[in-house]
Nucleic acid binder design. Structure first.
Lengths: 210, 210
DNA sequence: ATGCTTCTGTAACACTTGTTACTGCACGTG
DNA sequence: CACGTGCAGTAACAAGTGTTACAGAAGCAT
């Protein structure tokens, strides 16, 4: 565990902090597609990603959902920070995008480290920072882009996160993430294919030039 | 200045911190409608609101804009925190919604206080926390609500912020904030009036029952 | 191969929002 | 008062997105 920690966080945290993390944290492995936390769940610990990627979704009262952003290795979930601080329930759903390994750290340690380690403070601030930026980006996307552009962005992001130009998704899954309907996705994807930007196959979309 | 600080932040910060703020901060008064910071400006200090309210807007490349949220007394702008940390330019525009008084604190003090004062750390975290929540709310609004519901929410919020059921706005101004067109706003407002929810006058909308 | 299930393609239509154009009203100014 | 300017109301139409319905293709299990 220490080796993996060193790899993902060594350049951020001093030795002493790394050791404390290793000591009180527990490894958690999650398979692609598995749900990590649900809307309304209580937050029991704070995740530090070692590898893999996680998809963060927002849900409204009617069960409609919307992809907010992805988090990757070296990130933590600022929403979780948020919940820890506020002692509130989760405002989001988290689903493993790929097979993922993370370290879960007890909430109690957070405040202690914040006082003791400057590097930890910076990390927490930096997490908030990047999360706010992601949220701004999400807002730009849904406020200023049309659905076809949103689909293009979605495919780009997903291809990048998975390190594979072949995106494994059904049209229905894309529709859920973008909070639209399957028919709309099919329609626009077909148009993108005719424009030579993608290649459609069953359960898979090959990104050519987006 | 110390009196006002005490009033707005006395329950948050210890005496020593309040004194330091009073010492190195400078008062800034802004009239309603005045622009405080522009997209792309460099951030020179961190604002602590004493009274009034500020409107935070996002702008895309084409000059289209969108209201993100309001901040009020006792708040600071987490976006500014963000920029301070990252040494980056402003990602937003800030406009005084009402006449506003704030204290500007030099960025340099931030990190120092973060290390020295637990209350300051908590304040900064709390600011990030509430800003993330506001952003989530904004996302919910634009992702899950129709334009008529967004207008209703807008009028509710604006009436609350100004402490006045008479909202002083032209349809065009509302259209800018919601990133839609004047005609659409007029159309939907008229429908709301027919439903008895509001009363329309020139340059003013009276909120009756939203 | 047969049948079953899931995924995709497509048409037809409804609804929401955006656009253009024109009208008249309210208000301030000379 | 007459005039100009900005604001609001409305119609007609365009574009984008959402909904329903159905057909066919792909893959899986037997």
């Amino acid at each position: 565990m220490m080796t993996e920690l060193q790899e993902a966080y060594g350049f951020l945290f001093e030795r002493e902090l790394l050791e404390e993390i290793a000591e009180c944290g527990s490894i958690r492995k999650i398979n692609a597609g598995e749900r990590i936390i649900e809307f309304g769940d209580y937050v029991t610990g704070m995740p530090l990603l070692l590898n893999g990627a996680i998809k963060i979704l927002r849900e409204d009262g009617d069960g409609d959902e919307l992809l907010l952003y992805f988090i990757e290795r070296g990130d933590t979930c600022a929403m979780t920070l948020n919940c820890c601080m506020g002692q509130t329930k989760s405002e989001i759903r988290a689903v493993a995008e790929t097979d993922t390994t993370m370290i879960m750290v007890p909430i109690a340690k957070m405040e202690e480290w914040t006082a003791r380690f400057k590097s930890w403070r910076n990390f927490v601030f930096e997490s908030y920072h990047s999360r706010l930026s992601e949220m701004l980006d999400t807002i730009d996307t849904i406020a200023f882009l049309n659905m076809d552009q949103r689909i293009m962005k979605y495919l780009r992001d997903k291809a990048k996160i998975n390190g594979d130009e072949n995106v494994q998704s059904t049209h229905q899954q894309i529709a859920y993430d973008l909070h639209t309907s399957r028919v709309v996705v099919s329609r626009l994807l077909k148009k993108l294919e005719l424009d030579g930007k993608i290649k459609l196959q069953r359960n898979q979309i090959k990104v050519i030039d987006l």
